[in-house]
Amino acid sequence: MTSHAAANLETLITVFGGSGFLGRNVVRALAKRGYRIRVAVRRPELAGHLQPLGRVGQIHPVQANLRYPASVEAVMRGSETVVNLVGTLAESGAQTFDAVQTKGAETIARAASAIGAEMVHVSAIGADENSPSAYFRSKAAGEKAVLAAAPSATILRPSLLFGPEDQFTNRFASLARISPFLPLIGGGETRVQPAYVADVANAVADAAEGKTKPGATYELGGPDVLTMREIMEIILKITERKRMLVSLPFGLARLKALFLQFAPGPLNLTPDQVAMLQVDNVVSDGAKAAGLTLQGLGITPEAMEAIAPQYLWRFRAAGQFQRKSA
């Protein structure tokens, strides 16, 4: 263990939402840097998969619920930094966009400010109070609430995340196994800037270490701006499947989503997810000019075409043993 890592063991970082896709990678990144990590989750008994990411006793899942401020305050006691990764792509019961991404974020920020802890808040590119998507409107409201309660907080806005176990590339690769076609909502012309989850996790860890500008908003995108059509083509190429790409106008997609929001697995689609695709999801020119990007943090982002083959091979007809066509 390096002296730097040994010194970090004296520092406690509380991570809210640390058991999710991005959360697991953030916990791993912080553990590698030697920090003690308290992972605040609703169901600690389901967070056992985090333990192997660090040394014995380094990672400690603890119960907390954003709807109960007392539990939020209790779980961050003794922390020097608080990271909020909590979010939901679809509302369910009490887990509404407003409850999770606005009021929940505000509760965490107020509690962090009360104990003098620094805060890192993960939002999303596309956060806009005027967005057609309720998800993005709640993200914008969450950012505003966080900065009001903790003005020195760092806001990180990733684009779509990809990586092993993601709900993006894996979803469409899975759909390609059971469907003769893949839908291109809005014609597949929406532009996104997919970011590798490990790169974003390292940016979160950098922010937790105080390497970001206080009160600044960073936009984290990968090296390539791709249309949804291009992403589908990449997924089909990697999985070696031939499928029709069928354009689906936004109006028809919204209508289908009224029924598909109750569908299981890769068929699931909500009206709000359709609304999210009406706006490009790319790093702004302003963020690039100000150096508020992955590159500005000294991180060289990985491309989807370089990383996705490492985990999407399992969707080929014969998996990793699939023979290359002549």
Rank of each mutant, 00 (worst) to 15 (best):
residue 220 L to V: 11
residue 318 A to K: 15
residue 224 D to W: 00
residue 43 R to D: 14
residue 78 G to V: 00
residue 273 Q to N: 01
residue 168 F to N: 13
residue 294 L to F: 12
residue 85 L to Y: 12
residue 83 V to R: 13
residue 225 V to N: 08
residue 82 V to S: 02
residue 37 I to V: 15
residue 229 R to K: 13
residue 227 T to Q: 02
residue 231 I to C: 01
residue 282 V to I: 14
residue 265 G to S: 14
residue 135 Y to T: 00
residue 54 G to K: 11
residue 7 A to Q: 15
residue 215 G to W: 03
residue 298 G to N: 02
residue 193 Q to V: 08
residue 245 L to E: 02
residue 46 L to I: 11
residue 154 T to K: 06
residue 257 A to K: 04
residue 272 D to G: 02
residue 214 P to R: 09
residue 24 R to V: 01
residue 300 T to E: 12
residue 193 Q to E: 13
residue 77 R to K: 15
residue 244 M to F: 10
residue 147 L to D: 07
residue 242 K to P: 02
residue 316 R to P: 04
residue 322 Q to R: 14
residue 31 A to V: 00
residue 57 G to N: 00
residue 75 V to L: 05
residue 65 N to F: 08
residue 265 G to I: 05
residue 223 P to F: 04
residue 238 I to T: 02
residue 127 A to D: 09
residue 110 R to T: 03
residue 298 G to T: 08
residue 80 E to K: 15
residue 4 H to I: 14
residue 272 D to E: 01
residue 266 P to M: 08
residue 157 R to S: 05
residue 201 A to M: 03
residue 33 R to S: 11
residue 159 S to D: 10
residue 195 A to H: 09
residue 253 A to M: 04
residue 11 T to Y: 11
residue 157 R to N: 13
residue 12 L to K: 07
residue 150 A to Q: 14
residue 256 K to E: 11
residue 175 L to D: 01
residue 104 G to H: 08
residue 206 D to F: 15
residue 258 L to R: 09
residue 33 R to M: 05
residue 70 A to V: 08
residue 288 K to S: 06
residue 94 A to L: 08
residue 108 I to G: 05
residue 252 L to M: 10
residue 225 V to S: 06
residue 10 E to C: 02
residue 87 G to R: 03
residue 121 H to F: 14
residue 310 Q to V: 04
residue 65 N to V: 11
residue 13 I to F: 06
residue 273 Q to D: 00
residue 143 E to W: 06
residue 95 Q to A: 14
residue 293 T to M: 11
residue 169 T to N: 09
residue 155 I to V: 13
residue 269 L to Q: 02
residue 309 P to S: 03
residue 203 A to R: 11
residue 51 Q to I: 15
residue 195 A to K: 12
residue 257 A to G: 00
residue 214 P to Q: 08
residue 79 S to W: 00
residue 188 G to H: 07
residue 137 R to F: 01
residue 243 R to K: 12
residue 316 R to L: 08
residue 1 M to G: 13
residue 137 R to V: 01
residue 296 G to F: 07
residue 238 I to M: 00
residue 81 T to K: 15
residue 280 D to C: 06
residue 20 G to F: 04
residue 34 G to T: 12
residue 98 D to K: 09
residue 21 F to K: 01
residue 79 S to P: 06
residue 78 G to L: 00
residue 98 D to F: 10
residue 315 F to C: 00
residue 2 T to V: 11
residue 162 F to C: 05
residue 255 L to K: 12
residue 60 H to A: 03
residue 119 M to Y: 03
residue 136 F to T: 07
residue 310 Q to A: 10
residue 253 A to F: 04
residue 285 D to G: 05
residue 42 R to Q: 12
residue 293 T to R: 11
residue 324 K to W: 13
residue 14 T to N: 01
residue 68 Y to F: 12
residue 156 L to I: 06
residue 223 P to S: 04
residue 113 S to I: 05
residue 257 A to H: 02
residue 28 R to L: 14
residue 214 P to V: 08
residue 27 V to C: 07
residue 118 E to F: 14
residue 50 L to I: 01
residue 63 Q to N: 09
residue 282 V to T: 12
residue 229 R to V: 06
residue 175 L to M: 13
residue 89 L to R: 01
residue 188 G to V: 04
residue 71 S to T: 15
residue 49 H to D: 15
residue 278 Q to C: 07
residue 49 H to Q: 13
residue 212 T to F: 07
residue 160 L to M: 14
residue 302 E to R: 14
residue 87 G to C: 07
residue 98 D to H: 12
residue 71 S to K: 02
residue 235 I to F: 01
residue 168 F to A: 08
residue 157 R to Q: 15
residue 289 A to V: 05
residue 52 P to L: 07
residue 157 R to H: 05
residue 243 R to Q: 04
residue 90 A to T: 09
